[in-house]
Nucleic acid binder design. Structure first.
Lengths: 224, 224
DNA sequence: TAAGGGTATATCAATCGCATAAACAACGAT
DNA sequence: ATCGTTGTTTATGCGATTGATATACCCTTA
């Protein structure tokens, strides 16, 4: 495992965290430890959460919607409760997994891997767009065609990154103008036309009949 | 109803699938059913897999790396085996979840939701309208028929998106005219007729007897 | 069955939106 | 300081879209 991943462990029971903290560290994770919801709410910078439901200052499940309000990081719930309704409740609130005590360390580690793997897959998917010989890497901001790196102007770059953020989705003229130029430019459609034209000159094989950067007449533009 | 999500259920035990097939259908999923690995390998077009480990023609877990060779769809494993090593093995092979028999239907449904939520398919669900071979994706603004993308004019596009925002609901003439053309046009019903006609020419198989874009005589129009 | 309100389709000209070119100013890099 | 790049403005040709007119259609009711 290359770089360290930080987990947030929300757990008040010393019997559990005195066992988990060294075990997780030994398997290459950095761990932030919160003993109650107040501490948990102040934490940040973690890649996923391991949440015990039985906390001193309130029901641990309150933390799930709170976190979901601003974050999509995976949440793995630990609980001694056997009731199916508890599981369903937590999962519906936005948790990603629910593990009943007593659990095996190997299973916990495997389920942590699953959650991290899923988000890694999602991020890979979201960050690279490919169509024909054109490759757009939104993570690095690199655009290449037939292996050769294309140099784009700032506006061309901003336009293309925006379009590549949701390939296939139609962006209206006003959306593009507001995002790239600013809210005051939403009526200057001709700017858009010119810069779309310049983009096409760089990344289309035949700029006169675009295959990748497509016009939606009267509406806007989209990537194939 | 919006677009159905298709699940692949790999299960040979009649006692299980005779219970699961109707239950999953009742909760809005389309289900492909494979009784063994050979059938499972031939399936396609599913959004996630529910995989029973005890199959007649081999260990079910063989299917996990096979599928992972070309697909990232979520895999939820069902098994009667209680051994932690089995769980860890499957999860490390690429499964996303592991549910032990006997399990509750509500928990299974919740865990299916979690998996679909993670792959963002759930988000598409409410934004996609499907009827026969016509698919309207309101998130991307794309309209396709039998897989081929339809090109719509701005007015056609606005009309259809409005109708698709509440499929089944009747939109009155004045509502449609006010939304698409503007408040000053609420009496120009003939505009509506012309553009509804043009829409039908593009998206109905037999425009003379519409199956999707329906007339409510004297009131307005609606999607089937 | 005939009348009438409401609806569908065809055709066509005017208009609108798009792509492109050219010209120019502003800016940064060498 | 000069060159090259980038952002903006203006003008023009072209094709798609639209709205108007005219005609044909269908369902309901008397």
């Amino acid at each position: 495992m290359s770089q360290q991943v930080t987990l947030l462990l929300v757990e008040d029971d010393p019997g559990v965290y005195q066992f988990l903290l060294p075990a997780l560290s030994a398997h290459g994770y950095r761990v932030q430890h919160a003993r109650d919801l107040a501490q948990a709410r102040e934490a940040n910078g973690f890649a996923m959460v391991i949440l015990d439901l039985g906390l001193p200052d309130g029901q641990g499940e309150q933390f799930i919607p709170h976190l979901r309000g601003f974050s999509d990081v995976p949440i793995l719930v630990l609980s001694a409760r056997q009731d199916e309704l508890d599981k369903v409740h937590c999962l519906n609130l936005g948790a990603d997994d629910y593990l009943m005590k007593p659990f095996g360390l190997q299973e916990l580690l495997a389920r942590i891997q699953v959650a991290l793997r899923r988000t890694a897959i999602m991020q890979m998917r979201d960050h690279v767009y490919q169509h024909q010989s054109l490759v757009i890497n939104r993570a690095t901001g690199m655009v290449s065609k037939q292996g050769a790196i294309l140099h784009l102007s700032p506006i061309e770059h901003a336009l293309l990154m925006l379009l590549a953020s949701k390939p296939g989705t139609i962006f209206t003229h006003s959306q593009l103008l507001a995002q790239v130029w600013g809210p005051d430019y939403i009526d200057d459609t001709h700017y858009l036309r010119i810069h779309i034209g310049r983009l096409r000159a760089k990344l289309e094989d035949q700029p006169s009949s675009p295959q990748t950067l497509l016009t939606e007449l009267g509406i806007g533009y989209r990537l194939a």
